[in-house]
Design a protein around this nucleic acid. Structure first.
Length: 228
DNA sequence: CCAGACGTTGTT
DNA sequence: GTCTGG
DNA sequence: CCAGACGTTGTT
DNA sequence: GTCTGG
């Protein structure tokens, strides 16, 4: 699954992977992006713009337009059958840029230990997303959801879900452009093995609202915790 | 027909 | 908006 | 995802 | 235990 991630791009990553996108004058970065917060997405509607949207999809037919954080993820399997996702899955695709995402392991005593997962290649990740816009009177609320699938071998020891990663620029374009359900389905699969690396990070990450570069620092494994 | 839900994950 | 349950 | 709240009444 | 907020 993906319930927390980071967007702290290096200049190299911006130059190489976001050069076709207009960047805001002040780029909002975060080591700890949590559900309901705003984060950047690149949509099929405006593929040259980084748009800030709320994480946690609010369907266009929502009664109150509340960002609940309930729909932060959408399962790839069955996405067209869900009333909340059917329209976005067809014609509102987006890319969710990230340098890493996080997963937790829970230990007896309820201790939760976070791990950072990133590409070995040091490239930015583009997670597959869907977006929607809710309108009432003059109010507009844009929101998105990250699509999940079964994990590859690196992530499997931590969790049984992970975000769909669109690794190739051509695949990223196809994701934004397609409105064909069959092509959409085909693009939503687990990534190949051996492309990701992961390491333990500080439990300071657990509290939503904390931020800072120390959240990306490696933490040595405890002997007391048998992890792998 | 109308009312109410519409989602995912993890844990036991 | 659309589907499910009663 | 995790953390933190979860309630009412009466008194200061 | 379960819901809400970030």
């Amino acid at each position: 699954m993906c319930g927390r991630y980071s967007f702290v791009p290096t200049k190299k990553q911006l130059d190489e992977q976001l050069r076709e996108v207009e960047l805001p004058t002040t780029l909002q970065i975060s080591f700890n992006i949590a559900p309901t917060q705003t984060a950047y997405v690149i949509t099929n509607d405006q593929p040259k713009v980084m748009q800030l949207m709320h994480w946690g999809l609010v369907p266009y037919w929502s009664k109150n337009g509340a960002v609940s954080g309930k729909m932060i993820n959408a399962r790839a399997k069955g996405i067209f059958e869900k009333p909340s996702f059917r329209v976005p899955a067809t014609r509102r695709h987006c890319l969710v840029p990230a340098d890493s995402f996080y997963e937790w392991r829970t230990f007896p005593g309820k201790r939760k230990v976070p791990y950072r997962i990133k590409l070995k290649s040091e490239k930015l990740l583009f997670m597959a997303g869907i977006w929607d816009v809710w309108r009432e009177a003059s109010k507009e609320l844009h929101s998105f959801s990250i699509i999940t699938t079964t994990p590859n071998v690196e992530v499997a020891p931590l969790h049984d879900r992970m975000p769909v990663l669109l690794l190739d620029p051509e695949i990223q374009k196809r994701w934004l452009d397609t409105t064909d359900p069959e092509e959409t389905r085909q693009l939503l699969h687990a990534p190949p093995n051996d492309i990701l690396e992961l390491y333990r990070v500080s439990e300071r990450l657990n509290a939503p609202g904390t931020d800072g570069e120390d959240l990306h620092k490696r933490v040595d494994e405890d002997n007391e915790l048998t992890l792998f």
